[in-house]
Design a protein around this nucleic acid. Structure first.
Length: 217
DNA sequence: TGCCAGGCCCTCTTTAGGGCCTT
């Protein structure tokens, strides 16, 4: 089994995180699904410092279900820049910035698959905001992005299943969780590698994990 | 025709099953 966060090395300073969200034609690139939209939000020091967003044309059909879910139509995709062009721009925008996504295994699959189509490879790891939220907020009704935003009283544009809206909500969630971790466990800062450590810890061992982090930070 | 993923996590578990979460 491969962790999304193994071999992570991050300098101990104010860190930039790239929060990413894809809209796609389905659930699995292995089954032929392609990305239709990507958004990236850069956060640093608890605030959003930059954004990238684009629809993309991968030359695939958008089903009625997906159009109803996301509001992204075949016409919108047809008029968008090519997937190769958009992915190259997104990869350049992110560089080697550590990445975060909600249910990261999903976005990581599409990021790797779309990058592979332009002969590029990911150099950094993903942290998963859903996994961290499950450990930090077990009392939340569920751990869907929209539910967590509502549960925690985070900013909500009212738009869902569009890449930038979901990336921004995930960014707010990440900042909120960093603050929660700092307050609850007396940490001075919470870096990407700490999120990776927490998401990989058993929920019943979270306290022990945090004690180790407290000593390490 | 109908269906199609996959990794994680919990528990009524571990010789397994099913829910969660993403589009």
């Amino acid at each position: 089994m491969t962790s999304t966060c193994e071999n992570q090395t991050v300098p101990l300073n104010m860190e930039t995180l790239a929060v990413i969200d894809f809209e796609t034609t389905g659930l699995s690139p292995a089954m032929g699904a392609r990305a239709t939209e990507i958004a990236v939000v850069l956060i640093r020091g608890g605030v959003i410092v930059d954004r990238y967003q684009s629809l993309m044309n991968a030359g695939v059909y958008v089903s009625g279900f997906i159009e109803q879910l996301t509001g992204i139509s075949n016409a919108m995709v047809r008029n968008a820049p090519s997937a190769a062009e958009v992915m190259a721009a997104a990869a350049d925008f992110i560089g080697d910035t550590p990445m975060v996504a909600h249910n990261a295994s999903f976005d990581r699959k599409f990021w790797d698959a779309e990058l592979g189509r332009i002969q590029r490879r990911r150099s950094q790891n993903f942290a998963c905001s859903m996994k961290v939220a499950r450990r930090l907020f077990p009392e939340s009704p569920n751990h869907k992005l929209g539910t967590l935003v509502q549960y925690l009283g985070l900013p909500d544009s009212g738009v869902h299943h569009r890449a930038m809206a979901d990336a921004e909500m995930t960014a707010y969630l990440v900042v909120r969780m960093q603050a929660e971790l700092m307050q609850r466990f007396g940490l001075n800062h919470v870096l990407h590698k700490h999120l990776c450590t927490i998401q990989s810890a058993s929920s019943v061992k979270l306290e022990a994990t945090m004690k180790r982090l407290q000593k390490a930070i």
